[in-house]
Amino acid sequence: MATRLFAAPSPHIHGGENTRRIMGDVVLALLPALAVSTYVLGWRVLFITAVAVCSCVVVEYLIGRFLFKGRTTICDLSAVVTGVLLAFNLPAGIPWWIVVIGSVVAIAIGKMTFGGLGCNPFNPALTGRIFLLIAYPVQMTDWTTGVPDTLSGSTILPTIKYQPELVSQLDFMQMFGGQMNGSMGEIGALALILGGLYLLWRRVITWHIPVAILGTMAIFAACVGAGYGGALIYELPLFHLLAGGALLGAIFMATDYSTSPMTHKGMIIYGVGIGVITMIIRLWGAYPEGMSFAIFIMNAATPLINKYCRPKRFGC
């Protein structure tokens, strides 16, 4: 074999990090939550997740192959992440065909119309979820069908919304471990936090966005709780962090690269915005849960934040 001299401008080495590894890490970080969900809600969780992942990957493959006519991009695993996240935002009892529709919207409209990975202004999984929430409100908020009886009853967010004093009757340890009503991925608080720590350790995400969101929500809730006086100052914030999609949204959805700001300062502003909007919707809006809409709205603000939160120039 002869020697072939390579030529390229510097640098000549690479850190070895790649898109597929990052996406793989995100999937890995979501597995504990999936396990908790399966344990609590039953095998149907795995079925719905599989349907979502498969349809996302197939849609991305078909669009890439026949519309873009380019190299297929499914190998970067981003469609898998979208699929898992979408499934995590659905109730376990949802009919499978709705999941397929959601996946098509997420990938085809949420991602590929804008040019594929990295070009989408809104989180694709959220696009899919919000579409389904508006198109199939009944199925999307039915947390009981196909779920074991242990968790029957309506979800707690709307209950607390109108009767905040009931919060003191909740068992937070149970919520922490996954014993509560909600979408598939929302229920295992501990598992989600574990996943978040893993992502932090692998440097896939930084602390800025999750901490900004959760911190804002906690402070906001504490202020509101102070209005009721007594123990609610502590219990209302804790409740709002554990209930609904707060953790899933803050750790996994809001930190999506292409839809969140680039600089740390921008990330904090973005996180605070999400926290405030979420709490406003939760407390005074028509919907019981506001995480998705809050992230969606701040996604739209991201280019603006990027424009005004530039990194600090060296020497200035």
């Binding site: 072939r4 001299l5 390579f6 030529a7 390229a8 401008p9």
Partner: peptide, 12 residues
Amino acid sequence: VNHYDGALNCAV
């Protein structure tokens, strides 16, 4: 006589 491996752009 050598293999260019950088960005595919004449100016580069």
